[in-house]
Design a protein around this nucleic acid. Structure first.
Lengths: 240, 240
DNA sequence: GAACTCTTGTAAACACCGTTCACCAAAAAC
DNA sequence: GTTTTTGGTGAACGGTGTTTACAAGAGTTC
């Protein structure tokens, strides 16, 4: 069955345990606790052995980031699948809420992946689910407003690039989009939505609202309402 | 002139040098380079001596956060003062642009202060300039829309608390606000604006837009336009 | 001025960290 | 059966936060 040799299986197994230990340390004791020696201790080996698997502590951390992104994407896909309404508005809601819930439940992971002045986002994994959903959202005819003229011309170049990214992301899953549906106005609004979603979630995770929030959930839902309304969803279509 | 004793002056001087060295290390080589031994090395003393000034490495980092907030507030106040238009819309623009400019010029500081899952925002310093401006903005009659009815009732409690924070922040500077001007609708929009401003700036600093942005500045200005328009500013009042 | 206390530094030590190196045993390849 | 590759070890280097015992100077009291 398994085409791999015995050695390859063992290696894969150890690698899995390394990732798992690193993840547990991050979750339970924070970024600074993800230490080569601590990981090795968990596996019952010595620290230098880890260099047979990763070039450096930094490389291991990058791998950890990728794992986190993949896991988060899986969670969000599950949230998306759990929505059986078939309405795009509800799907957007489900994913946005899922993102918030995930971030609040995994603050250390969120901080590591989304709030480090790091490399230029090596995360191929990251946001694939967002891109997927954005693609679907744009493909759906529910979004009626937003012609290209609203968008300042200086942004065209960048938005066209994002347009291509979206097309690629969606086409991977077999869906194709007609060119005229994917206009720059819609794309611009997708970006704006990402700004608001990310801003709200990050502020909540980091506790950087200028006052203590005792009812965070309805505040998020309220933001979501307005966001969806700005994108162009009717109220009844995006019913809670 | 100086009422302090010789010893007190020396102590204050050393403390100043410690903060300065810590800041320089953060800026030049990142958070992980802000090390007790590195700071001590810079001052020509040994690491344990720093424990005469701070209880721990963590306490020193907290102090560093406060310093950063104070400096940023000074910069933003200067940006505010540099606007001679007298129009609140232009002042909001000036401060928001100032915040973005500061964050991009000081990514390490921004990450430390605004994107760490830390203590519940001990920053009394932080955002005082934002609160100031928000108070002024609300006090001005330019914002005409936004009655209380738009705001979900579950949020009332929190927003009232923020209302009090705003009142206090503004009253410190001698300005008083009539109660009816400071309605919950306006306050809610201030919070929403903070979400968008923070979200955009953080995404830019951390490079987490889903595509490479070649013209970041007009994209920010565009967001700012829409934000101000949503708050209720007329275009001509907030002319660029 | 002498004796005393308080302040601010030191040096040594402990336990931890990332990383490198020489070495070694077992597995795989030949 | 010999050789090579792989995945581990232990020792070491220089780095870290922190504690402790100790010393020297400044300020205070008599």
């Amino acid at each position: 069955m398994t085409e791999a040799t015995r050695r390859e299986r063992l290696r894969a197994e150890t690698e899995r345990e390394i990732r798992q230990a690193a993840r547990a340390l991050l979750v339970e004791r924070g970024r600074d606790a993800v230490t080569l020696r601590a990981i090795a201790r968990e596996l019952g080996i010595t620290a230098p052995a880890l260099y047979r698997y990763y070039d450096s502590h930094d490389a291991l951390l990058r791998q950890l980031c990728d794992d986190i992104c993949a896991d988060m994407a899986a969670v969000l896909y599950a949230d998306l699948a759990a929505d059986t309404s078939g309405q795009v508005g509800c799907q957007v809601r489900a994913v946005c809420r899922g993102f918030r819930r995930w971030a609040l439940a995994h603050p250390q992971e969120f901080a590591l992946v989304f709030a480090s002045p790091r490399d230029p986002l090596g995360a191929d994994q990251f946001g694939s689910v967002f891109l997927q959903l954005a693609g679907r959202l744009i493909a759906s005819n529910l979004v009626v407003k937003h012609a290209d003229e609203e968008v300042p011309e200086v942004l065209h170049e960048d938005l066209v690039r994002f347009q291509q990214v979206l097309m690629d992301a969606v086409s991977v899953h077999g869906v194709t989009i007609e060119d005229d549906v994917l206009n720059l106005g819609k794309i611009y609004h997708v970006v704006q939505s990402w700004v608001r979603l990310y801003g709200h979630v990050a502020l909540e995770v980091f506790g950087r609202f200028p006052f203590t929030v005792s009812n965070p959930e309805p505040m998020f839902d309220s933001m979501l309402d307005q966001m969806l309304s700005d994108i162009g969803f009717q109220e009844d279509d995006s019913a809670r």
